[in-house]
Design a protein around this nucleic acid. Structure first.
Length: 183
DNA sequence: AATCTGATCGTG
DNA sequence: ACGATCAGATTA
């Protein structure tokens, strides 16, 4: 992806301490950094989905459980879960502690990685090497001054409840269409 | 204890 | 359109 446009600034916890529907679109084109030092991998976020507690499709809808506990914890942490017996998905926890909400990172662009290898929630975690051991870890989001894209809000993907809620934001994608589950 | 259902992805 | 594959949540 493009080299640093500005000096990367780490987003403060306050950034995440707001409603998921507000934070989600602002996460577009921010960098999600995994690892540190020379092992650090950056992913420029290009597709997100917001999940709040009042959302029937959210894992937090029915209250705290062992799996979703992190969603109810402090903002700015990673909520990682395992689904379909084979895929991991990463979320950035938002809102105040006690409020179960998060933003699912559905796609990102990575330097030297074929976009088709990171254009889906499950594929992205593989590309970033994220698994359940990252659940609850502090998220490392960077703002390198990349211009904010004109976020397009659309219905969500891959869920069966409240599908129509406009809580999915997609940024211009440099390669082939995002995902294959068109809408 | 048993059943059901996925915030997905690759293949047919 | 469908199967893979299993953990977590729900129901009995």
């Amino acid at each position: 992806m493009t080299a640093g446009i500005g000096r990367p600034r780490r987003l403060p916890v306050a950034f995440f301490a707001r409603d998921a529907t507000v934070v989600a679109p602002e996460l577009l084109h921010k960098l999600l950094r995994v690892g540190s030092g020379r092992a650090a991998i950056d992913a420029r976020i290009v597709e997100v989905e917001a999940y709040t507690q009042d959302d029937p499709a959210s894992h937090s809808f029915r209250g705290v459980t062992a799996r979703n506990a992190v969603m109810f914890g402090p903002p700015g942490r990673l909520y990682v879960y395992f689904v379909y017996g084979m895929h991991h998905c990463v979320n950035i926890v938002t809102g105040a502690s006690g409020d179960g909400q998060a933003v699912l990172v559905r796609a990102a662009v990575m330097d030297g990685i074929d976009p088709r290898r990171s254009n889906g929630p499950g594929k992205l975690t593989v590309a970033l090497g994220i698994d359940r051991t990252h659940d609850g870890a502090r998220a490392n989001l960077l703002d390198d001054g990349a211009p904010s894209p004109a976020a397009a809000v659309t219905p969500r993907i891959g869920i069966t409840k409240a599908v129509d809620w406009p809580r999915r934001w997609v940024a211009p994608w440099p390669g082939p269409e995002v995902g294959h589950v068109g809408s």
